[in-house]
Amino acid sequence: MTDAATAPEPGTVYLVGSGPGDPELLTVKAKRLLERADVVLHDRLPGPKILEGLSADRCEDVGKRGGGERTPQPEINERLVELAREGNSIVRLKGGDSFVFGRGGEEAEFLAAHGVPFEIVPGVTSATAAPAVAGIPVTHREHTSSISIVTGHEDPTKPESAVDWEALAAVGGTIVVLMGVRRLPDYTGALLEAGMAPETPVALVERATWPNQQVAAGTLETIVDARDEVGIEPPAVTVVGEVAATRATVLEFLANETANEATAADEEV
């Protein structure tokens, strides 16, 4: 049995955002830490190419699995502490930025409460990256100078949404909804009821920067049908506002689209 005198110094936990999924959008620091980590605890959102590049014997999948099963957050918290107390260097890898609806703040608080050193490594958040690679700027001098970022995935047991859609409709600007594919009819309906114009442009960007990226475009009134026609599935980002219409003006020359098509074709060969 290891006593306090011989116990290893706690290892450091790195709370790392992996960006939207393209390995080339990992930060230099994130890449270095992944190469050196003793253990990587990852979700499913970092993207297939990033996960394929990791050594399987150093990885633990703590994300959502088929059938809706998921590793409970308290279990992930305890595992981080356990691994750190063994002296490991641990990367807790999440998609996008772990502090933007990624529970990074919860994990940081838990680690601090248990005396475990940690470092936060920000990532490129999908809230801005997903629209960007689809040709949609979330701000534009001719359209909007404000952004509201909200989650579309809330606890289903809540009696009502914690998001004030009426206030968002009144503020205007660009509204970016993360994890909101399933509840698209609910919040587009709420925005319409709050007085937002039915012709307000909307776009859905699924799996931004992944080989199978796809986009559905429409308006508040038509986007649910557009989602179903294209077959948009999670994970996807919703963009509501005039900026969503700018995609049509740049699409012909948008190299991101060509790059994604080429990557997908290469993988089929």
Rank of each mutant, 00 (worst) to 15 (best):
T2G: 08
T6A: 13
A7C: 01
E9K: 15
V13S: 05
G17M: 09
G19E: 07
L25Y: 08
L25D: 07
L25W: 07
L25A: 04
L25N: 03
V28T: 10
V28M: 13
R32G: 09
L33D: 04
E35Q: 12
L41N: 03
L41Q: 10
R44C: 02
P46S: 06
P48T: 08
L54T: 03
E60R: 13
G68E: 03
G68T: 08
R70V: 14
Q73V: 00
P74A: 00
P74F: 10
E75G: 01
E78L: 06
L80A: 07
V81D: 04
I90M: 12
V91L: 10
R92A: 06
R92W: 06
L93T: 12
D97T: 06
S98Q: 10
S98W: 09
V100E: 06
F101S: 00
G102H: 01
E109H: 09
E109G: 12
L111M: 08
A113D: 11
G115F: 09
G115I: 08
P117W: 06
F118Q: 09
F118S: 11
A134K: 07
G135A: 07
G135F: 00
I136Q: 04
P137R: 02
T139N: 04
H140A: 12
H143C: 12
S145T: 14
T151S: 14
E154Y: 01
E154T: 08
D155H: 02
T157H: 10
T157R: 14
S161C: 00
S161V: 05
A162H: 15
V163I: 11
D164I: 10
E166Y: 10
V171L: 14
V171W: 12
G173E: 09
T174E: 02
V176N: 03
G180R: 00
P185Q: 03
T188H: 02
L192C: 04
E193P: 08
G195A: 01
A197D: 13
P198G: 02
E199P: 03
V205K: 01
A208T: 01
T209K: 00
P211M: 05
P211G: 09
N212H: 10
Q213V: 02
Q214F: 07
A216L: 03
A217T: 14
E221D: 14
I223A: 00
V224M: 03
A226F: 12
R227Y: 05
E229H: 12
I232T: 07
E233K: 13
E233L: 15
V239L: 01
R247K: 07
T249P: 05
V250I: 10
V250K: 08
E252L: 11
E252Q: 13
F253N: 15
L254D: 05
L254M: 04
E257D: 13
A259Y: 11
N260Q: 14
E261Y: 11
A262N: 13
A264G: 06
E268D: 11
